[in-house]
């Protein structure tokens, strides 16, 4: 069955590629939309070039640094807000107001005072921060009262309860956050390159568009999607590692 499914998936990919090739050859000039048969070799060539890997490394570095900042800040603030009674009620309207504010509004403000590399990291951090913070808050809210009572009845102190009860409860929510933020982080690291010319993949794509290397640009975009898939896969793997007990719980409930 699974073999059959994978076969169909492969057929879907091939079908899409063939359809793209035919449509593009029939309707577009290769100056605007090059066929896959031109893009693919170009992508392979790029994979052998140092400048592609440097750019990828820079983009990923910005994404990872921003992500780490977001995780640290989100966890610390989430636990602080979630575990001090009343603090959530006072802050929730402010958090609700700030969350939907798109982080890229920061670009025009920050570009006056910071350099583009720092802004890119900050963009990533701010966007991911909200996701982490709200997931932590959901998680803290879901801490089971019976579990807390159990821990208290065995005289576990506040810190021990956070370590043994609250943290493991929040962990699955952090796993979800991690899965969500890796693609957000990558997207914003790339956007930084596109909008402000921060060195990296985004900038490389934009400059190849400006200099008219159309096929090269398409190849870069194709590869960018590949990087996205790899990063996403990595995040899912990390989540499963982190939550082996939890994923298994879900499987048992489903069965």
């Amino acid at each position: 069955m699974s073999r059959y499914r994978h076969g169909l998936g492969l057929a879907g990919l091939l079908g899409a590629a063939v359809a793209y090739e035919l449509v593009v050859r029939a309707l577009f000039s290769p100056l605007h939309v090059p066929p896959l048969t031109a893009i693919a070799p170009e992508a392979v060539r790029l994979l052998g070039e140092a400048r592609f890997w440097t750019a990828t490394g820079r983009t990923l570095l910005a994404a990872v640094v921003g992500l780490a900042i977001a995780l640290a800040a989100g966890v610390v603030l989430g636990f602080a807000i979630g575990s001090v009674p009343g603090l959530l009620r006072v802050t929730s309207s402010t958090l609700d107001f700030l969350r939907p504010v798109p982080s890229i509004v920061l670009i025009p403000v920050l570009i006056l005072v910071l350099d583009v590399k720092e802004i890119t990291v900050l963009l990533v951090a701010v966007s991911c921060f909200w996701i982490v913070l709200f997931q932590v808050l959901y998680g803290v809210r879901e801490v089971d009262q019976v579990a807390v009572d159990t821990a208290r009845s065995f005289r576990l102190g506040r810190l021990a309860r956070i370590v043994h009860v609250t943290w493991p409860t929040v962990l699955p929510y952090l796993g979800t956050a991690l899965r969500l933020i890796v693609s957000v982080a990558l997207a914003l690291a790339l956007t930084g390159g596109l909008v402000m010319g921060t060195a990296g993949l985004g900038e490389m794509i934009w400059s190849s568009q400006e200099s008219g290397e159309v096929t090269g640009m398409y190849a870069l975009v194709l590869l960018t999607g590949g990087i996205g898939v790899a990063v996403d896969l990595l995040a899912r793997l990390a989540e499963r590692r982190l939550l082996h007990w939890h994923v298994a719980t879900r499987r048992e409930v489903a069965a």
Binding site: V33, L186, L194, Q209, T224
Partner: peptide, 26 residues
């Protein structure tokens, strides 16, 4: 679902802003 799942997995993670230069040319 089986036909589209690899395609979707790809496009889901391809950030939309990256499509801007592509569409600009196309």
């Amino acid at each position: 679902r089986a036909l589209t799942s690899p395609l979707l997995a790809y496009f889901r993670v391809l950030p939309a802003p990256v499509m801007i230069p592509v569409l600009l040319v196309a």
